[in-house]
Design a protein around this nucleic acid. Structure first.
Lengths: 188, 188, 188, 188
DNA sequence: GATGAATGAGGTTTCATTCAT
DNA sequence: GATGAATGAAACCTCATTCAT
């Protein structure tokens, strides 16, 4: 209820929640998450007033991390195709290297507990990606469609590709490239 | 010689489950589903031994219906692009006209309760779609990628398009066409 | 509700109940007993109006069989010690050769479902044993105690001996004899 | 640092369980036991993880109390017959003065929920009684029989005597003495 | 009479949240 | 602030009994 003091503890809880929800889904009990975080079950509720709060906080945290992974270090001075490829590769690398975070995010994406407001906020984090897409399609076949639709298609392709990379890790790079080529054909 | 098990009642339960799970997710209580179906609490368990059984049965039922919608009446004597387009349109029409079924299926797709066996069976129902894709890419850019990956990409595009059609129903046909064109560019 | 017709079916149910209760106790479900008897769960209730009725019927049946085993063929023309020994041996032989019946009887003996009336009826079946005891103690040390107490002590010794015979079957006869000798010292 | 688990509450639950099981048997609902203990439904499960745990805990508690009643204050410097008589009298006094505990123990003795391990532990608590019996029979007629059998016979006689004392309380002392005399004749 | 589907109360256990320590 | 015991509303599932076929 009062302002939490330890940022460490908050982080512990979020990371324990990530691990637990990845394996059990959002029905994971708060007591289990607390124990996994090495914190008492009561303490969890001083850092997150409600289980829904925890879920929403985790959602934002993971979305932000994902967006940052995709966009940090973007070579803005280079060719658009190169930039888009950079974004694609970093996004997919992040997702495949933290499968728990990615799986948890997938769970939260379909959960009823995430508020519309937070979904919108998460969407805003991808503004950089949207901007890149906007430029990339400038002279291509998808000039007429709403940008949001385009973003949705990109996400869909990315997620499908990630699934396949995790499922067949030996050829992960291969699949990543094939996915990107498909994307490029789609929007170019 | 005794009162026969009623197919109607089974259907009632499945359709009540569809409605309830669409709005509450798979955590929907069996008691709520039973009441919504106009059936006693205990009766549900004579038709489905377990809640997990109900979920799995529903999953198969909906997947089958979805596959049938996409493939029934396929004009196999026509051009591949026409066939693929037929499939695309019918699939999306089904999904957008029964949003509850579609939403429930989305929930079940990520649920831990669905067995690997049933996931495989559901996959098999889409064999027709896979076959169509296999032929369609024959001379295109995606000859090298695993067919399963191609199917995953198709599904991803379809789902994203469906989302957008539901979100912006006025231009649904427009989005459907844009999605299909994108798909065709991707595989052609 | 109507008069049952098939004595066979009644017997099947009783014997299925014996087996099932022996292993699960009186909480055994009527549906399980019915299935074990090869009868529909509804039918069970035309032969026994109530589960309690079934339990009570079974109790009487088994008690009667036990009493008969102990007393049938009693050599009434012989020495009392010989008669008592005959009774003891036959009782214990019955109990050790039908462990299910014996175990079920033990369960029913402590069950709340058995009516006082039926307990009394069961007691009456052992009148022969009581009579034998009455005569046997005529000149011994237990002339003063209530006959019912004497019967209780006999039963207690018998049950303890049976337990031990089942537990250590190799020396069953030995234990049987030791038990009888102890009994005889007690009452002589 | 948090509210400590209360020994009182544990005791309340055990004693409520004793009363409830005495009258209803081990099928007594945990909710009923909790209410009788003045504790919430859920609290019972912080003191006993499982209903079976509660039953086993109660079993050990009652067996220990019974053994202590029989053996505490044993006049080890006196004649064996005196010691055995002391044990007999105290045992029977305990049993007849707490009929609920005794009845509950009788229920638990035949329950499937009690583990073999706990049965063995309970047996060990009676080691003092066994030792006394071992010495008492030294020069008597029961030198050849297994000690465990002897213990079983003693228990059987005690239980039968207790039943009779409860059933006819006016002459309880009389019956107790008659039972002991019978026991002594048996082993002397 | 026989069958087994239908019923709904009741059983054990879990869990988010509160609050005494 | 931290802890974990306390709470009681559900949740899933079982079962004796009834009744349509």
């Amino acid at each position: 209820m009062a302002r939490p003091r330890s940022a460490d503890k908050r982080t512990s809880i979020l990371s324990a929640a990530t691990r637990t929800i990845a394996s059990q889904g959002p029905v994971a009990a708060t007591a289990v998450i607390a124990k996994e975080a090495g914190v008492s079950n009561g303490s969890l509720f001083t850092y997150f007033e409600t289980k829904a709060d925890l879920l929403n906080g985790l959602y934002l945290e993971l979305k932000a991390e994902m967006a940052a992974s995709a966009l940090d270090g973007l070579p803005t001075d280079q060719d658009l195709r190169v930039q888009l490829h950079f974004m694609w590769v970093h996004w997919l690398r992040w997702a495949t290297s933290c499968p728990d975070k990615r799986r948890t995010l997938a769970h939260l994406d379909v959960s009823d507990e995430i508020t519309a407001e937070n979904r919108k906020a998460a969407h805003a984090m991808m503004a950089g990606v949207a901007g890149l897409l906007e430029q990339s399609r400038e002279h291509g076949s998808m000039q007429g469609v709403p940008l949001a639709f385009l973003v949705a298609l990109l996400s869909a392709l990315a997620e499908a590709t990630i699934d396949f990379m995790i499922h067949d890790p030996v050829n992960a790079n291969h699949h990543s490239q094939a996915g990107f080529d498909a994307l490029w054909r789609m929007i170019a």
